[in-house]
């Protein structure tokens, strides 16, 4: 049984996931997403803290403050409308801080951003950031599996 802690943060726009049904991701709500993540973590003995914030500056300061308190991170930066609403530099700074502590971090997007939005992937240190896009809620499950493997290899 591991006592590793995983922080899952979700950015602006993810409080209401009904828009994603138009993109083919049916029956998504923040509650079902959270439950899917908690179930996946429970099965692996990980402790998950699932958060969402429509205020990006608040979300980012929350993330930066928590870097030392968690063992791994999943970030869905989302964005209210398009790429211009994501503060890439601020996310990059937070991701670099996580990578400098050699902790796993994965960006997860519900939709395939290369097909279904004009958003760009986040940036970070070359070897420090995973990326999953287009798997709906299952993207979070894949990220959790990968993080668990990485933590158990440490």
């Amino acid at each position: 049984m591991s006592d590793k802690k995983l922080l899952i943060i979700n950015g602006p726009g993810l409080s209401d996931l009904s828009n994603y049904s138009e993109l083919g991701y049916d029956d998504l709500s923040l509650d079902t997403l959270k439950q899917k993540c908690i179930d996946a973590c429970d099965g692996l003995g990980l402790e998950a803290d699932f958060r969402q914030n429509d205020d990006e500056p608040e979300l980012l300061s929350d993330l930066i403050n928590e870097v030392s308190n968690f063992d791994a991170f999943i970030i869905n930066p989302a964005g209210l409308s398009n790429s211009s609403s994501i503060d890439y530099d601020a996310f990059s700074a937070a991701i670099t801080k996580i990578s400098n502590q050699s902790k796993p971090v994965i960006e997860v997007r519900i939709e395939n951003i290369f097909k279904q939005s004009d958003s760009k992937p986040l940036q970070g240190a070359e070897s420090g950031l995973g990326f999953i896009s287009g798997l709906g809620k299952y993207g979070y499950v894949l990220a959790i599996q990968s993080i668990n493997k990485k933590l158990s290899n440490q």
């Binding site: 994965i106 395939n112 290369f114 097909k115 950031l129 995973g130 990326f131 999953i132 896009s133 287009g134 798997l135 299952y138 993207g139 499950v141 894949l142 599996q145 990968s146 493997k149 990485k150």
Partner: peptide, 23 residues
């Protein structure tokens, strides 16, 4: 490739293959 597929998985290392096959 990205705009022709359903999903993109990158940066998970060699384990990404087996994680994807599992899922």
């Amino acid at each position: 490739v990205s705009s022709a597929v359903d999903a993109v998985v990158a940066g998970l290392g060699a384990d990404g293959y087996s994680h994807a096959i599992d899922l």
